[in-house]
Structure formats: structure tokens, C-alpha cells
Design a protein around this nucleic acid. Structure first.
Length: 513
RNA sequence: GCUCGGUUCGUCUAGGGGUUAGGACGCGUCCCUUUCACGGACGAAACACGGGUUCGAUUCCCGUACCGAGUACCA
């Protein structure tokens, strides 16, 4: 019988959730939905010194924004409540003790100074990788070296101690990663990881295995940075006697810097001026700010599509995927093995596509927002029509204002470059005629305006291309934009004539001979 | 250093013993056009290197190089 698919996303609330973390969550979600399984979120806050207030709320909001729905979480609850490891603290010790009991773990009393000294000593002795392992533990203060009564006495007297995993000296640890295939590691290269810290909290390694087991996790989909410690986890499943229900592992390739090499970091974002966090974030301790996709004008569906394709592809030519389509198409087999450089251009392209796909009516929301922000009235203009006209030239919602503010505000200045090239005597004479013809009218249709202009042009024997940009400049102040005749229709003949008159006056001294 | 992973156009990638090595982003040229944008057409652009195996290797194997991750009482 097939095991129920249960996956989990297990972030630490140590700051803003990195976009790579969002991708990990997304892959978990896609897999769970595809398989008809469940996805849960667990907060891994076993390091109390790194807790950052607000981080958990940030995670919650980021996932909500991107469209990831959790079946179980600290916020909605679930059959395995609580979902915060700090609240599960009493659970872990018994498993550590079980390991001590069965001889797979031991107490260690070494101070940080002693640990440092050990590592220094090994380094000086040119040992390749200094670690607490089968060999060095014989030289340290722990329950494998100390007399039994001393161990008992230390424990009874409240001496600080940790519990360490007793990694076997010679054993091949293997795991079959769904993305990488068989990975083999010799236990000699692993060290005796701390399982329980001296503050009574478990480390990631123990808490993670215990919770995944208790919560019935079937697949662990996480970043590649966990691959080196995966053998430790395999050992833990084995020693805890949970081998037969050990989840399947899938270690995701990392997100890399866009240029050069290395892991994607906040520094790249600051340097290149693009976001790598889902939403804006201000660190409450340092006051450091980070830019978010959401506030930068990215649509959640664009970010989702973009993220899904960073390391995965459907094997077809299709590029645009809704969440439902991603779920349908997703498979772990099609996740790549190599690191993925982060290219913001692709994200922008996706944003443009999704923005363009919206109806004119939906788009008006962005324009209304801009109008509000600039305290400008819509002058009763047809916003849907304007947005429809503008949508081909927009990448972000804010571009609607940037590209179309002249609909709502009179030009204050005129693009110098266009003036110097196109504000000719010829153009001025056409504008004068056009202006007075328009002034006589109230409203006008685009084709009427066009006919009117063409009549003037024919009379004067002037080609349209020679004067068009100047006319546009007079009306909008800029040299580029959508169909000018439609702009005139939207603005109305009277208003257009008014603007032309003003331009004629303002630029009277700039006419090119 | 050591351990583990990785390596197809600038980037994301498809492919896989015999292909004109395909697509997308970006870039360039042209077309459309009153401009810009959109759209369309076209173009430049890749199998890291060296050995094997093979009639044949980008594809399989081994090395090398390079890149990445891990190497905490952090996750």
C-alpha cells in the first residue's frame, strides 16, 4: 500500500524568508498537491539566541502571498500540534535518552574552551578535518571515557552537558536521494553531532528527525545545503528504529548569484537593485532593510511561475503556468541537479506577461492607486480604455502612471531632445492649424482627428512622419507613447487644443529654422 | 584542507551513443508603424578539459580543472 504523501516546510524564524526558501516551500507544495498529499509547516526555533521577532509572521504572510496553502501549521493547527519546536521541547529528551540507552549516543561534558583546544591540537597535528569522532572522543570528557560514577555524579550535580551521537568508526552510510541518486559517505568523515544542547534544547538534527517521524513525513524536500548532514539523519532514523518509515530525501539545487559565483545573498540584491525576498523587511534588531518582490511591483503569480522554473522544468515548451498547471505538471524527477543563477530579467518578463494578461478593467486598480498616491483626479476619463492602451508597454503596475500620467496632468516640461530635433517651423504651422480646428470641437473620435490632421497635412504638402512627434510632444510632453489619435479622443478635442496652445506658446523661442 | 555535490549558448534549460544540439530570457538586425512599446521574421551565441570504451561520443567510464555546499551546543 502507498504511503500517504506528507511533506513539510521547516523554516527558522531568524529573519526575512529568503526567496530560495520560498522556492523550497513551493516545490513542497506542488509535490504535495500533485500527489494528493498534505503539506505542513513547522517552525524550527530551537536556537533561542537567533530568534527574530516578526520573522514568523513574515513567513506566514509570504507564503500566503505566493499562494501556498498549508494543511497544518502553528497558525491553523493540525493533528500534530504544536508546530513550533520550542513548544515541543519536552518531547525530545526521551529520544536522546533512548539513544544513550541503546549505546548510540553519550553524554559529553567538554567546555567550549576544551573543544577549541581539541580542534587546535588536531589542526597543529595536520589532521585533515578536526572533529569530535570515534577517535577523538576517547580523549575528551564524556560518558565513554569517564568512570560511570563520575558521569552519574556530574549529571546529578547539574553539570552542563550535551548529548552527542555516537557515530560508528567504520561504516558506509548510504542514502538514495530522489534528485541525486545514491550518495555514499563513510562514517569516519562524520562527526559526533550534538543532539541535545546544554540548554536542554535539541539541535536541528535531533528535532528534525523526531518531528518528521512523529508527523508522518513521507518526503523531505529541502535545500542542498543539507546534503552533507543527511547521512547523520539516516543514522538517526536507523538508531531510533524508524528505518522502515524513513522519508525519502530530495535535495534541491541552490540559488546562486546572478554574476560570478556563490550563493545568492542580500548583498547581490542591494548591489543590483533587485529583490531577493518575497516582501519588504526591516530587521527589528539592526534596522537593516530588504526589498521585496511584492513591493517592487511583482505579481505573485509571476513570482511563482519564475520560481518554479528555477531548477525545474516541465519538459515541454510551455513557459506560462498557473499554480494549478504547475501542480499538474510537477514532478521531482524533473528537478535539475546543478545550481541555478538568479536572473531578474526572466522575472521581469514573467511580470510583464501576467500584467498584460489582465483585463483592462482589472488594470484600472493600479492606475487608481497611482492617481491616489499623486493626489490627482481622473478627470472623468475612461481608465479602462487608458490602461488597455498602456498595457503593452508596462512591466510593473507603477509603469501605468509613468507611461500615462499625461492623461491626467498637463505637461510641465517638454522632452528637450525631441524639441531640439522636431520642433520645426513646419511642425508649428501644422500644430497651429490642427489646434484651431480642434478648438472648435468638443469631443472627437480618433479617426475624425486623423482625417482632420491628414487634411491639414495634404493642404500644406507635408508628410505625416515629419511632424507627428512634435504634435505628440505638444500634447503629452514626451516623444513616445501609444496611438496619438486615440490619446486625443480620450483627452477630448478641447483639452487637446488647450495643451497645443500652451506648447506653442511655451516653445515659441525654440523653433528650429 | 577534508567530505559531499555539480558542470549544454551570457542566463534558465531540452536532449541524449550517429541531431543543422531545440526552446525561453537577454542581445543584434529587419519588418509593421506617426514615435516608443507590442507583435512578426531573422541572426550571433553552448555540450569545461584530457584520456579511455566504441565503427562513432556532447551523451557511458576514469581523471583533471573549475564552481558550489558542508565542515558549530546555527538551522
Amino acid at each position: 500500500m502507498e504511503r500517504e504523501v506528507r511533506v513539510r516546510f521547516a523554516p527558522s524564524p531568524t529573519g526575512a524568508l529568503h526567496i530560495g526558501g520560498v522556492r523550497t516551500a513551493l516545490y513542497n507544495y506542488l509535490f504535495a498537491r500533485k500527489m494528493g498529499g498534505k503539506m505542513l509547516l513547522r517552525i524550527e526555533d530551537t536556537d533561542q539566541t537567533r530568534f527574530v521577532p516578526g520573522a514568523e509572521e513574515y513567513i506566514q504572510e509570504a507564503l500566503r502571498w505566493i499562494g501556498i496553502e498549508l494543511d497544518e501549521s502553528p497558525w491553523v493547527g493540525g493533528p500534530h500540534t504544536p508546530y513550533r519546536q520550542s513548544e515541543r521541547k519536552p518531547l525530545y529528551m526521551q529520544y536522546a535518552l533512548q539513544l544513550v540507552e541503546s549505546g548510540h549516543a553519550y553524554y559529553a561534558f567538554d567546555t567550549p574552551e576544551e573543544l577549541d583546544a581539541m580542534r587546535e591540537r588536531l589542526k597543529a597535528a595536520k589532521v585533515a578535518s578536526p572533529q569530535y569522532n570515534a577517535i577523538t572522543r576517547a580523549t575528551m570528557k564524556n560518558s565513554t571515557t569517564l568512570p560511570e560514577d563520575e558521569v552519574k555524579a556530574r549529571l546529578a550535580s547539574g553539570d552542563p552537558y550535551v548529548i552527542r551521537l555516537k557515530v560508528p568508526r567504520k561504516e558506509e552510510v548510504r542514502l538514495n536521494d530522489m534528485i541525486r541518486g545514491w550518495v555514499m559517505v563513510h562514517s569516519a568523515t562524520l562527526d559526533d553531532k550534538v543532539l541535545m544542547k546544554s540548554d536542554g534544547m535539541p539541535t536541528y538534527h535531533l528535532a528534525n528527525i523526531v518531528d518528521d517521524h512523529l508527523m508522518g513525513i513521507s518526503h523531505v524536500i529541502r535545500g542542498e545545503e543539507w546534503l552533507p548532514s543527511a547521512p547523520i539523519h539516516v543514522l538517526l532514523y536507523k538508531y531510533l528504529g524508524w528505518e522502515d518509515t524513513m522519508p525519502q530525501f530530495a535535495h534541491l539545487p541552490l540559488l546562486l548569484k546572478p554574476d560570478g559565483n556563490g550563493k545568492l545573498s542580500k548583498r547581490d540584491a542591494d548591489q543590483h537593485g533587485f529583490p531577493i525576498f518575497p516582501m519588504d523587511w526591516t530587521d527589528p534588531n539592526t534596522g537593516e532593510k530588504a526589498m521585496g518582490f511584492r513591493e517592487s511591483g511583482y505579481l505573485p503569480e509571476a513570482v511563482t511561475n519564475f520560481l518554479a522554473f528555477l531548477g525545474w522544468n516541465p519538459g515541454t515548451q510551455q513557459e506560462m503556468f498557473t499554480m494549478a498547471e504547475l501542480i499538474e505538471a510537477f514532478s521531482i524527477e524533473r528537478i535539475g541537479k546543478s545550481g541555478t543563477k538568479f536572473d531578474i530579467n526572466k522575472a521581469k518578463w514573467y511580470n510583464q506577461q501576467y500584467l498584460k494578461a489582465k483585463t483592462d478593467e482589472e488594470l484600472t486598480a493600479y492606475m487608481k492607486e497611482a492617481l491616489n498616491a499623486h493626489s490627482v483626479s481622473d478627470n472623468g476619463l475612461d481608465l479602462a480604455k487608458i490602461c488597455g492602451l498602456l498595457k503593452e508597454r508596462v512591466t510593473f503596475p507603477a509603469d501605468f502612471w509613468q507611461e500615462g500620467k499625461y492623461f491626467f496632468t498637463e505637461p510641465e516640461q517638454y522632452d528637450e531632445e525631441i524639441v531640439s530635433k522636431k520642433w520645426t517651423a513646419e511642425a508649428v504651422s501644422v500644430i497651429e492649424s490642427f489646434q484651431s480646428a480642434l478648438a472648435a470641437k468638443g469631443s472627437i473620435q480618433a479617426d475624425e482627428a486623423k482625417a482632420l490632421l491628414e487634411g491639414i497635412l495634404t493642404d500644406k504638402g507635408i508628410k505625416i512622419g515629419k511632424v507627428m512627434q512634435a504634435i505628440r510632444l505638444a500634447i503629452t510632453g514626451v516623444g513616445a507613447g501609444p496611438d496619438l489619435m486615440v490619446i486625443i479622443e480620450i483627452l477630448g478635442a478641447a483639452k487637446t487644443a488647450e495643451r497645443m496652445a500652451k506648447a506653442l506658446q511655451t516653445l515659441s523661442s525654440k523653433v528650429i529654422a
